[in-house]
Computed example of a mutant assay.
Amino acid sequence: MNQPTAITSRDNPLLKRLRLLAQDSTAYRKQGQIWLEGDHLCRALLARGRRPSTAVFTESFWPQAPHDLRDAADHIVTVPDALMAGISGLESPAGVGFVWDLPEVAGVQTGGAAVVLDRLQDAGNVGSILRSAAAMGFVQVLALKGTAGLWSPKVLRAGMGAHFALNLVEGLAADDLRDLAVPLLVTSSHQGDLLHQARLPWPCAWVLGHEGQGVSPTLEALAARSVRIIQPGGEESLNVAAAAAICLHASAAAR
């Protein structure tokens, strides 16, 4: 086990970078790294056989840290609890965090079951959809331009580790989806086949649209089918993350 390096200055370059990664939703794109805070996200990374570049522990947590976390990285640092609190995006700062180098983007996987995000704005919705996608056996999430950053801190927290099970591609245009070579299923609140009656193809790509505007006309034109969820209670529409969970479960159950 490597011995940690103690950092005590707020102006240390590493801590400056961590504050940026933790508090700026787009910093990961320039830095090529993400900040994973807390036991759950750190262990989710390790469970997928990934290794962080740096492990950061608070001074109070380091003496009691489990061995798998202590041995997770070649570069280990400890910081005063107060400095970790200055980095943290959590109400109760965690005792451990990892810095992980973003993987190279593999691009759209032809023939792979996918979830397509069309300009979704809410980070909580995006993270929740990633969790559903991973749980239901989808292999990739493809985000069109205008969607919340898939690796932003809020999406990471809402995703609860699902990121590490998926091929994630962002910044796409509608034409990029032609490489998928699987049927596109468009969700709608007012038209299309009722989900519980539809025969769903597999593999497929579910397209989930903007929280207010829905799926764009361009994607509707590319879709093989439009699907809606029965709502006997009479509400106008479902939250997009809730709709995604229902649709993705229906695909998984029909396989």
Rank of each mutant, 00 (worst) to 15 (best):
K16L: 15
R19K: 14
R19E: 11
Q23I: 06
D24W: 01
S25T: 11
T26I: 10
A27D: 10
R29K: 14
K30I: 02
W35A: 07
L36Y: 01
E37M: 09
E37K: 07
G38K: 07
L41S: 04
C42K: 05
L45V: 08
G49L: 08
G49D: 09
P52R: 08
T54Q: 14
T54K: 14
S60E: 14
W62M: 05
P63S: 01
A65E: 08
H67E: 15
D71I: 07
A72V: 11
A72S: 15
A72H: 13
A72F: 12
D74N: 07
H75V: 11
T78S: 02
T78C: 03
L83V: 01
A85Q: 12
G86N: 13
I87Q: 06
S92I: 08
S92E: 14
A94S: 05
F98Y: 11
V99F: 07
L102N: 01
A106K: 14
G107F: 14
Q109G: 05
G112M: 14
G112Y: 02
L120R: 04
D122E: 10
A133P: 01
A135Q: 11
A135V: 01
G137A: 01
G137C: 01
L142N: 04
K145N: 11
T147I: 04
G149N: 08
L150P: 10
L150N: 05
L150G: 03
L150K: 08
L156G: 01
R157Y: 03
A158V: 03
A158R: 00
G159A: 15
L166Q: 06
L168Y: 08
A174M: 12
D175A: 13
D175G: 07
L177Q: 14
D179Q: 14
D179Y: 07
P183V: 00
L184A: 09
S188K: 05
S189M: 13
H190L: 12
G192Q: 03
D193F: 11
L194I: 13
A198D: 10
A198I: 09
P203G: 03
C204G: 05
C204H: 08
W206A: 02
V207N: 05
L208G: 13
E211Q: 05
G212I: 08
V215C: 06
L219E: 13
E220F: 14
A221N: 07
L222I: 07
L222D: 14
A223C: 09
R225M: 02
R225I: 00
S226L: 07
R228D: 09
E235D: 05
E236Y: 09
E236R: 15
N239F: 00
N239H: 00
A241R: 06
A243W: 02
A243R: 01
A244V: 01
H249W: 15
S251K: 01
A252V: 02
R255M: 06
